[in-house]
Amino acid sequence: MSRAETYAATGAAARAPRALWSLGLLRNELLTTFRRWRTLALLAVLAAVPVLVGVAVRIETGGGDPAGGGGGGGPAFISQITDNGLFLVFTAFAATLPFFLPMAIGVVAGDAIAGEASAGTLRYLLVAPAGRTRLLLTKYATVLVFCLAATLVVAVSALATGALLFPLGDLTTISGTRIGFAEGLLRALLIALVVAASLVGVAALGLFVSTLTGSGIAAMATTVGLLITVQILDQIPQLHALQPYFFSHYWLSFADLLREPVYWDDLLRNLGLQALYAAVFGSAAWARFTAKDITA
């Protein structure tokens, strides 16, 4: 145990080793998470979505007709893909953000604590002098890293597919103005970050659910179930007074980054809402986890 040695060696100064220890814990968590077949399968599914969309659009427009002609159906931006492969990135986010991405987050977040509990490894983790709060924070950080990784996987896969199948170049914003390809790439990156941040709320919710049960499967199912329920409720017009408080309500606001000038209102509302969910469910998870009897 190298971190134990590190710890013993610098035991006199309390702060530095604790930080190191946390980093070591985080690194371990990350390695464990990203080495799981389950995680890799989730990422592979996410990477496949843009490829599928790209190939479908390519086949459909093989004759030269623009996609989605007249109807404007399908995910947002799909009609622009044929002219500029960069739009595949935005289409991929519009296609994966409502379900695939949060589902993957729900699986990883739901598994975070409950998975350890059902595998019987949670008590061993707690034997180490980490403290429950720090363990919870590490778990949450791992889930957040996974959010970012999942989003970037979608973005990179979409960009690669788009570059292979379609021309790249200057793009027309949805406001009708033109921006250069470099700025387009920058906006795509910004959009990826916003999409990753949009998942912070689901991650906190999943973590909280994960502290409630000792069964990893139950936690994942509950989180994904909640996600679907909220998505359905968000479509019911009679609930419009409640909808601004659903974590998924402003998800598609990432498209506002493609307006010229950028329309910040909904973007900021989305980020604020995600921060609120993270604070409420994060602290609820803390309250639950630090007071819980660990039996497994």
Partner: peptide, 22 residues
């Protein structure tokens, strides 16, 4: 939602651009 309809008057040109259907 994720689209915009713009009507642009620039000199002698009037453009309408519907980004949803391109």
């Amino acid at each position: 939602d994720a689209a915009e309809y713009s009507l642009i008057h620039d000199g002698t040109d009037v453009w309408g651009y519907d980004s949803a259907s391109n």
